[in-house]
């Protein structure tokens, strides 16, 4: 099981040149493209797509920021510039369906692009994984066993409260026969990791605690072996929290895509 991909990731440009269209576009996102830790999740999503034989493609270097952090920070100009440029690219490729590796990209493209001329069916990668499991295309076999392992899942705000997706990620975990334990604040009552609303890119205001520490303390109360995430920004915040608490020897933070890929030996 190497980190390296043993297959080529197809780009839209290549598919277009061959006169083909993908079933689904994988929107990687900035974190998934550049952040070293998130890149692993990105590759695992590709491995899953490749494994089930779904015809997919990425935009590669033609992808650009959705504009989410600009919009949350109040720069509507920059957001709409990014959005319209992206929509032009997506529409030129006649994209119908998109899976994203990030709840922020998911929310922005799904909810905020239609008003600017970009209407697509958009799902988050945990929803795709759930669908594949439901269709029997993806099982939890041939890889690492998660049976009985204690996993707690952290709801990303823009997937959970933002778009009411609470079940898909949990179903993906249930398929592993793992022991799913909920934190006190979960689902619609979930506590933010501290990264949203452009906080990821700035120092927090003066207070008595960092938000990710507050969250990780609650996660650690469930005595988990794995903390499951489904957002690259939550991933950063949670991992930092685990390190600050000196628990990185005992607790691993993994994206649902990574867990799924591991369980299938991908």
């Amino acid at each position: 099981m190497s980190e390296q991909l043993n297959f080529e990731v197809p780009t839209m440009a290549e598919l277009m040149a061959k006169g083909e269209e993908p079933e689904i576009l994988f929107w990687v996102g900035c974190a998934g493209s550049y952040d070293e830790r998130a890149q692993k999740t990105t590759r695992d999503i590709c491995k899953i797509l490749h494994h089930v034989g779904l015809k997919y493609a990425v935009l590669g270097t033609e992808e650009s920021c959705t504009g989410d952090p600009a919009k949350r920070a109040g720069n509507e100009f920059l957001f709409q510039m990014q959005a319209m440029t992206n929509i032009e690219v997506l529409n030129a490729y006649n994209i119908k369906k998109i899976v994203t590796g990030c709840p922020h990209c998911f929310n922005t493209i799904k909810n905020e692009y239609p008003g600017l001329g970009g209407s697509y069916e958009v799902i988050h990668h945990t929803q795709l994984i759930q669908q594949l499991i439901d269709e029997g295309k993806l099982k939890a076999e041939g890889g690492e066993s998660f049976k009985g392992k204690k996993i707690t899942y952290h709801d990303p705000c823009y997937l959970g409260r933002g778009n009411d997706v609470y079940e898909a990620p949990r179903k993906a975990l249930e398929a592993l026969d793992a022991q799913l334990v909920e934190m006190k604040r979960c689902k619609s009552g979930g506590l933010c990791c501290g990264a949203g609303g452009a906080q990821m890119f700035k120092e927090p205001e003066k207070g008595n605690k960092d938000i990710n520490i507050e969250r990780i303390e609650e996660a650690l109360e469930t005595k988990p072996q794995i903390i499951a995430a489904s957002c690259p920004f939550c991933m950063t915040m949670l991992r930092d929290g685990v390190k600050m608490k000196d628990e990185d020897q005992n607790v691993t933070v993994l994206d649902i895509a990574e867990i799924t890929a591991k369980a299938n030996g991908l």
Binding site: L5, E8, V9, T11, V28, C30, G32, S33, Y34, Q39, T42, R43, C46, V58, G60, T61, E63, S64, C65, G67, P69, A70, A73, G74, N75, L78, M81, Q82, A198, M200, F201, K202, E203
Partner: peptide, 30 residues
């Protein structure tokens, strides 16, 4: 806005990403 927010906005404007990475490197993860 806070200086770090300004920097992030500048990065999106110039590189199409909130961090200072080259758009040409966007597909290197593969």
């Amino acid at each position: 806005s806070p200086a770090s927010i300004n920097a992030m906005l500048g990065n999106i404007e110039n590189n199409g990403a909130p961090w200072k990475y080259s758009p040409a490197d966007r597909f290197n993860w593969a």
